[in-house]
Amino acid sequence: MQKILSAMDNIRLFDDLARKKSAIHSLHPVAKLITTFAFLLFLVSFGRYEIIKLLPFVAFPLFMIIKADLPLIPLGQRLLVVEPLIVGVGILNPLFDPAGWLTFASIMIKATLTVVAALVLVGTTGMDRLASALYKLKVPDMFVLQLTLTYRYIFVLVEELVVMMRAYSLRSYTQKGISFKDGGPFVGQLLLRTLDRAQRVHYAMGLRGFQGRYPDDGQTSLKAKDLVFALGWIGFFLLCRFYNWPALLGLLLGGIQ
């Protein structure tokens, strides 16, 4: 029960983080979205044996985390949730490829940086402002709506789950969790309850003029600082893509190539 309650708090964490005030938070969401997208594109463009060249890319999420003052532990916890999946994808490489450990490391680094960049983007922007940025970038309405409503549905689902779990655990104090026998009806009821609740939320949205498109959040156009941020980082990614900075640095400092 306690785990579910803390999960509920955790799930709100990114909304809370997105409300913080920092230089990164104040940037235009479009600038952050484009920069993160460019980061991911450049990251996946490297070959599977080019591990060293990936290292400078750590700078971008690190810079964002420090400047936005994002807490490391919750980010790490979320990363840990995804890591087993990444390991599962890459772990077979050493069996079939002589240089398999290299490709495994490459997959790990790329996937980890991708997840961290996505978490940082949501933690510094928030889903609503991201949706607004996606509209501005002419992403189809249906896609943005699916994304935002799915995100919101998670809250409804967790809230209803907490209510049902509380009621269940209060009347089943001799057992832990939900018994197998009750599992089916429990899940069925949960889905019906969330459907009902989601419908009421939809009514509330409809009554305030919602017609299938999230309203613009009133963000003004890109400012000079947004352009400097986006172009500066994209320039950095370009340099990292076409020059092997770790090798150059090694050569410069220690004569090692």
Binding site: D15, A18, R19, G126, M127, D128, R152, E159, R197, R200, V201, Y203, A204, M205
Partner: peptide, 11 residues
């Protein structure tokens, strides 16, 4: 709405 949680859905 009777239940304010139905009405407050943003962040």
């Amino acid at each position: 709405f009777q239940d304010s949680d139905d009405q407050l859905f943003t962040t």
